[in-house]
Design a protein around this nucleic acid. Structure first.
Lengths: 334, 334
DNA sequence: TAATGGCTTGGAACCGGTTCCAGACGTAAC
DNA sequence: GTTACGTCTGGAACCGGTTCCAAGCCATTA
């Protein structure tokens, strides 16, 4: 049976308050007493029980992170940022991974009422209005990363602008036949794909290019699915000269398709991704870098600030995105 | 201020014990009383404080997972398995990510004495003898995944056999000049690379092939490093006809090097990886599949069993490995 | 000498649950 | 009518910390 603070107090012939003061570096303990207590702690191999401390202080020294199931490299990358930012602090990280909308809702419910964590970081899971309100009114501060709600702090990425940026760049290169290959746009989870698509459409419209529905390919976020969809796009009677892939993983699938079909990239087909995962660099893929790691770091920072304040106001922080031109884009063949 | 169990008791005109019994589905509560209590709980929007419950029951309903920094896809894949296996249980997952040997030691120290979690899962971080003893003697059950110590439960992978398997297969194809490209063998962290290398050496020896030190390339676990090292190997006066890469990421770097040097795979160079990460399938990479996801699942299962028993005995469970022959290996050119 | 105030200290009360013991009540058996 | 027993209930004690109040002690000051 591990020693308790009372055992230590008895052993050192002091009161429990004194032991507690020594543990918490309270200066109003005489050196003599402090040494006696420290010796007792050592003799008894005493280690304070964090649960008991949590109960009496009301702090859990834990940050809850809720994120979609760890399949996509981009989630992992954001999580790494969170992890790193938390490493220097006194907080531990408790991970809630969401595999379905129902589970997400359940977590949002639970979290907002049970003080399991001092703060909550929600990654890539935008809450609905009612949930957001609950979260905002709950005791624990909440920060969204890669998600937005007016009532909550968020670290966000302007996906509409990203979509425009890519499309404008392709148009500027001279492309007119630009396809969009992404996740299903109507997903209960995350609207970022919709935003990217919206940016794509806006840029087309501004350039006076008519949007053609046959240039839209939707599918699951997998390399193999993207490959299949890309083959369909490239087999059209009037195939696109550029494909805007909704994420880098899908762009890699597009590259697979092009290779298998003997279509040269970038000469005969420009391919552009979105995210800036590590593989993009190796594959020399043109992409929009959205600083995934940094978004995790910033999220933690916002949360730590919110933890300091008594009344956290809903702050927004944009992570800049940037177009990284590499080897998979070029002007179309004349 | 959230309602407490005493508020509920007062509101429902019952004792706190009764409320607690209702919360825990204790059958010895009359239906009438139960309904009264449930109504009070609803009226006050009461939710039990998990910390307080933890303190009085002694259970945290939390599993701690310690793993190296989330850079390698293989760690993430194991973590996903853990995550999934825990999803159906009442346990939450608290994540400790280790970035240095010193930090690893600190975690091992802390964990073995503070009851922060009901059980600990250690991934890919073999403890030293003294640490293992501490862990074994601590109150919390510990399971190692992808690591071994005689005194602890472990889910392990026979890396020596994996190394042999690969090498024997290459020899059987007719290769004699087989290089090994892996992490630094002398690492304070994880010996799996050493074991794979050992299997490689044993297989060579048994086939009567002299091991040549110039066919050993060590470097950090990064695709770009592997590419550089592979170029060096392939620029040797007498270059290898096959490269055994210590992990799939490194194998991908080898493929990069071959492509850049215009060396055809598998005709002029066989490349084989190790791990079975997802990309291996897409890249059509021959590899040793070690069922990373499953190892996480099995680890959790072992831990849950250990949590049930009062005296957990150190059990071992091997995850089978299997050679997956794909398109990057072939007999050498005559 | 008494009053004042600073420095230490002991320990009760508290955080919010669970558990267990004692007792109230009702019914059946003698 | 009393005993016995089962069912249900209240609440004190407990888990192991922190916090705060009261008080002891000593030196300084009036």
């Amino acid at each position: 049976m591990p020693a308790t603070i009372r055992d230590v107090a008895k052993y050192a012939n002091v009161g429990v308050g004194t032991v507690s003061r020594v543990l918490n570096n309270n200066p109003s303990v005489s050196d003599e007493t402090r040494l006696k207590v420290l010796a007792a702690i050592k003799d008894l191999d005493y280690h304070p029980n964090p649960i008991a401390r949590q109960l009496s202080t009301g702090r859990t020294l834990t940050i809850g992170v809720i994120l979609p199931y760890l399949t996509m490299p981009s989630y992992v990358e954001r999580l790494r940022g969170v992890q790193r930012a938390l490493a220097g602090t006194e907080y531990d990280l408790i991970l809630f991974s969401v595999e379905s909308p129902a589970q997400r809702d359940a977590f949002f419910e639970d979290i907002s009422r049970s003080p399991r964590a001092d703060g909550i970081l929600i990654i890539s899971l935008p809450p609905e209005d009612q949930q957001a309100r609950r979260l905002a009114n709950s005791q624990v501060p909440v920060v969204l990363v890669d998600a937005y709600h007016p009532e909550l702090c968020s670290v966000l990425i302007d996906d509409i602008q990203g979509g425009r940026m890519i499309t404008e760049y392709l148009i500027q290169l001279g492309h007119q036949k630009i396809a969009f290959l992404g996740d299903y746009l109507e997903t209960p989870f995350h609207p970022s794909m919709r935003y990217r698509f919206q940016g794509y459409q806006e840029a087309l419209q501004e350039a006076g290019i008519t949007y053609s529905p046959e240039y839209l390919a939707e599918g699951t976020n997998e390399r193999s699915t993207a490959r299949r969809l890309a083959k369909q796009l490239l087999s059209l009677e009037n195939p696109p000269t550029a494909i805007f892939a909704g994420c880098d993983t899908q762009a890699i699938g597009v590259l697979d398709a092009a290779r298998e079909m003997g279509i040269r990239v970038p000469e005969a087909l420009s391919v552009i991704g979105y995210d800036g995962i590590r593989d993009a660099e190796y594959l020399n893929l043109t992409t929009v870098e959205q600083h995934l790691f940094d978004s995790g770091v910033e999220g933690v920072q916002l949360l730590l600030e919110a933890l300091d304040q008594t009344i956290p106001e809903p702050r927004k922080k944009y992570i800049p995105i940037e177009l990284v031109v590499r080897g998979t884009t070029a002007p179309p063949l004349a």
